[in-house]
Amino acid sequence: MALWLILALLAAAAIYAVSLYNGLVGRRNQVRNGWSQIDVQLKRRHDLIPNLVNAVKGYLSHERSAIDAVVQARERAISAGSDVAARASSENQLTGALRSLFAVAEAYPELKASQNMLALQEELGSTENKVAFARQHYSDAVQRYNTALESFPGNLLAARFGFAPATPFGLEIEAERAVPEVRF
């Protein structure tokens, strides 16, 4: 009887450990999948930018610097490689450059009204959103995975089977992180 009880307990423990391990693997895959989603959306953004540049070049001949900033930021982002931190900072620079380009375009009514530009703006805006939501999904996945790694029964398994904590994607550009100055 006692033997059976011990065996049953051992079996239960083994099943629990297996499900814990599989849960960790599943969460790690979610993190990887989340990262590849960001990658897909960032690539899509890179692909859209030449269209944008072509569309605005004619109208914004006096604003070369804004266009050049976007083109250069895109090139840097493409060559940033797969390191999460470097990638995040260069992509954030691209976001900033795009924002200032759209801000400049606001001043040109014909450009703003052109059908092509409207469609492009929707596509790029949506792609920005997709990047943001992909990041949100990625950070949620990272948070779930890291919490599972660090909390009690998981941390025993994690150390043994080489689960490394995941790096969250740097969220803000430096300018956004700065505390805004408020004057009364």
Binding site: Q30, N33, G34, Q37, Q41, E122, E123, S126, N129, K130, F133, A134, Q136, H137, A141
Partner: peptide
């Protein structure tokens, strides 16, 4: 686009 965005957010 919205549908695609939300699908991405949900993975």
């Amino acid at each position: 686009n919205l549908v695609e965005e939300m699908a991405i957010a949900a993975g």
